[in-house]
């Protein structure tokens, strides 16, 4: 099964709607609840990062027999130092984004903790691609 979604940078009102839709689909497919929980946390954080840090992005979700693979491809400023960005507490979020309670620098660590495999690639000035891979059993 293949699904595609679009995300607009700065659009906090719709942040999380892709995660919510994917969660519904996984529930309908009777996926193990703990796998749904992990996948939803990882996807939500990646989705919100496009909203908070990039200009726009596409989310591609592939649900296969044995795994779910989610690719989030954005156009944005990119991440100069991915290792640093992965550290708990590291954030470049703006003041207004922090006031909403985002910007703790915990999103990427949450993604790491909630995926079987997380791949982040980025080109400064172009954009970032995040791939979340979770086994379904």
């Amino acid at each position: 099964m293949h699904f595609e979604y679009q995300v607009t940078g700065g659009d906090f009102t719709n942040a999380g709607s892709t995660s919510s839709s994917v969660k519904k689909t996984l529930k309908q497919l009777n996926v193990n609840p703990s796998i749904i929980k992990r996948t939803v946390v990882a996807l939500y954080e990646a989705e919100v990062n496009i909203v908070a840090h990039a200009y726009k992005g596409n989310i591609y979700v592939d649900i296969e027999e044995d795994a779910i693979v989610i690719s989030l491809v954005d156009e944005g400023p990119g991440i100069p130092d991915i290792d640093k960005a992965m550290e708990v507490g590291y954030s470049t979020a703006s003041v207004s984004v922090r006031e909403m309670g985002f910007g703790a620098g915990m999103g990427l660590p949450n993604m790491k903790n909630n995926s079987d495999k997380l791949t982040v690639t980025s080109e400064v000035g172009k954009g970032t691609t995040v791939e979340i891979y979770n086994r379904l059993q």
Partner: peptide
């Protein structure tokens, strides 16, 4: 929000001073 996303458990009551819609997105997810 990311701390709640990472560490709250289902069925928990969330105490916060954040009032915007993203709170509900997290509560639901």
């Amino acid at each position: 929000l990311s701390d709640v996303m990472g560490h709250a458990e289902s069925g928990n009551v969330w105490i916060t001073l954040q009032t915007h819609k993203n709170v509900m997105a997290i509560a639901s997810l």
